[in-house]
Design a protein around this nucleic acid. Sequence first.
RNA 1: GGGCCCUUCGCCAAGUGGUAAGGCAACGGUUUGCAAAACCGUUAUUCCCCGGUUCGAAUCCGGGAGGGCCCUCCA
Length: 490
Amino acid sequence: MYNTLTRRKEPFVPVHPGRVGMYVCGPTVYKPSHVGHMVGPVIFDTVKRFLAWVGFEVKFVVNITDIDDKLIIEATKQNCTVPEIAERVTTDYLACLKALGVHSIDLFPKATDHIPEIRAMIESLIGKGHAYPSCGDVYFDVSSDADYGKLCNRDPEQMEAGIRVEVSERKKNPGDFALWKGAKPGEPSWPSPWGAGRPGWHIECSAMSFKWLGAPIDIHGGGLDLQFPHHENELAQSECHLGHPFTKYWMHNGLMKTGDKKMSKSEGNEVVVSALLKRFQSEAIRYLLLSSHYRSPIEFSEARLLEIGRTLEGFQRFFELFKRVTKASFHELKTMGHRDPDRFNPSSLEDGFSRDMVSLAAGLVECLADDFNTGGAIGSLHEMLTRLNRFVAESRVEETADSGNITQLIEGATLFRECALLLGLFEESVQKDPGEKTELVDALMTLLIELRAQSRQAKNFAMADHIRKGLTSLDIVLEDRPGGTIWRQS
RNA sequence: GGGCCCUUCGCCAAGUGGUAAGGCAACGGUUUGCAAAACCGUUAUUCCCCGGUUCGAAUCCGGGAGGGCCCUCCA
């Protein structure tokens, strides 16, 4: 995997054999999640799926930052309390994750539940000479850390030249950052040796990651925009506190763009997930996020989502075909759920369908093993789909219902499902716009299909085509399959 | 001023020294009464440009052009 700290790909060797601790920076919960917030969770969910499948025991933690200046401002604006905002936005965030198939996060610790740990860490940093109280605040002293800037490869002096915010009088060096912020009247606060206040922005992640994952942890992830200052500062304060490394592998995902600009709450160009989910299937959103490499920027557009919708229909049709032929539901196929080297070894098989499927699956695994190349893996998924469809066509299993072929088809589809689940795709069957399809519609369709079948039998193709064209104008497509005519809404 | 990164078919996109995956779109073919779906085939002798290294480069090095992100709000 690519490690931001070393700026190159490295073999993944966890700190403790067999176990992996992964911490990903979650949201500051002051505004509903936009699609950009989903990139990291979906990527790291996939990372965990893969690592777990390979055999590691993975603990995956995503924090919720529920106290911050932004929350205080938002609460004032909405005339409610900070916890109310935090609660509401957190609920939205969790619902979005669930919709996108992000199920692998083990814990969502909240900053406000870790004030004692945060205070203790600040005390330790002051004790070691890395931090100093100043007018009710406490700052981290950047000049006390010789390594400062190592994550982002930056020289503190050079950074001053590009500084674009006012430097507070309370700081010793312009690069110093707040560990603790004294409260102004009316602001939410907690007692501390430096006066009532709240934690600064970066300290909560350090404190929570130590508490829930220990140190050093294996993987620390987040968006590219967190690299500086958030992660640089986390790294500095953590290593000064610990006296040893904080994180072995740093992973950063690319940012989402709209119209060539970064999507962000402050740009005001964000596409809110909950609204998007009303108009597009969640699967298409997940597919979009996984279709390019996680370190690249992703351009968001509805046109692209629509295109992916067409792509997904091809998979959907296969699942329906699979059910018609095997009488089994693709979404209920039992997979192994872990790596079995024998099953991913094509050389042990004779030429043919099974061998092709295994070799495509092995290719997919190789993609994921190479810095989580989900785009390449999706390519393999498409090739597997084509191979499955080709098998159905060549074996004529739809007409013959040959039991040997059915067994092979089920095996192939099971392998495909195992691969798709590594990406979190096709987990559940997609119900297409329910409500339209009622018993009455079903009965009427059966009648029309029967009438058309009779017309065709009588060679009255004009009538048969009239029926089909009429249905087409109602967005209903008929397909004459070997086992009879089927219909679907387009 | 400094740091990081990107540029591959009409669009999206994989590929990190061994001779260009995949998707969408388009066009042929098989199939079909005709369709639909599916399958097969075609669509980049070429990877922003110019040099260099190498038996061999989209991949490495140097230079140039264009674009993005970051330098204390951000996933």
